[in-house]
């Protein structure tokens, strides 16, 4: 019990006067997870929308694949990306292993199925009549997709939050492909692992608190956006 209290006290003082290690890990977390979420948004939402609106051979297979991917263990993704990025691997010449870019690749693979799967669900939860009405009014295919996505923007934002939540809290893949290098690929979660392995529990708790505050702040902004949209709509 005493250790816990001590740890919280020390965590508090570290938070009040953050050092460069803490700031760099925080910044790197935002940068890597933010980029990965953004790429998943660009790729995942259109794929989810397309899968919701069009029927084509192999569609069920792809949807099942995405649904499986939503629960993909980060360590498996990490292992897979690592094998591809080894110096002797197919993308070895790019020298990407143990760089933030490698972490972005791995985290994108983790977030993409989440964003795509939830986008698909979001579009499918709209009343089917809506689409027929839009088409009857003469909307083109792209226009239909755009208008339906607008209509589903609240659950689409939820998809975005879920994708971001999956990657900012992830540690296995980041550790494997990033290498937890100080000032370069050390993010908050991998720093927690290191501090705990060094026996510096107070620092670990401080880093954990920063992570929670960060995740809360971002979700707070997104939730406000979402709920504001809701009020306008009703």
């Amino acid at each position: 019990m005493q250790l816990i209290l001590e740890a919280i006290r020390e965590a508090g003082s570290r938070l009040l006067s953050p050092d460069s290690d803490l700031l760099s890990a925080t910044w790197r977390t935002l940068q890597v997870s933010g980029t990965a979420t953004f790429i998943s948004l660009l790729l995942g939402v259109p794929s989810g929308v397309a899968l919701a609106l069009y029927r084509f051979p192999g569609r069920i297979f792809i949807v099942a694949l995405i649904n499986t991917g939503m629960g993909l263990p980060p360590v498996v993704v990490g292992l897979f990306v690592m094998l591809l990025l080894w110096r002797s691997g197919p993308f070895g010449a790019l020298e990407l292993l143990y760089t933030p870019s490698a972490m972005v690749i791995a985290q994108t693979l983790i977030a993409l199925p989440v964003v795509a799967g939830l986008s698909l669900a979001a579009l499918q939860s709209l009343p089917a009549r809506l689409r027929l009405q839009l088409q009857a009014l003469g909307a083109s295919t792209l226009q239909t997709a755009w208008l339906l996505s607008r209509e589903a923007r609240l659950p689409l934002l939820a998809a975005l939050m879920a994708g971001f939540g999956a990657v900012i809290s992830e540690v296995g893949a980041s550790l494997m492909v990033g290498g937890n290098l100080r000032g370069s690929t050390r993010v908050l979660t991998t720093a927690v692992v290191l501090e705990a392995s060094k026996g510096n529990f107070a620092s670990g708790i401080a880093l954990g608190l920063v992570l929670l505050v960060l995740a809360y702040a971002i979700n707070d902004v997104l939730t406000r956006l979402q709920q504001r949209g809701r009020e306008r709509k009703s």
């Binding site: 080894w86 110096r87 002797s88 292993l97 143990y98 290498g179 937890n180 290098l181 370069s184």
Partner: peptide, 19 residues
Amino acid sequence: VKVIAVGSGQALAMAARGE
């Protein structure tokens, strides 16, 4: 310099593959 901390066995296995 990228310092990758693993067990001795894994470090040697990485090195044997030129990683």
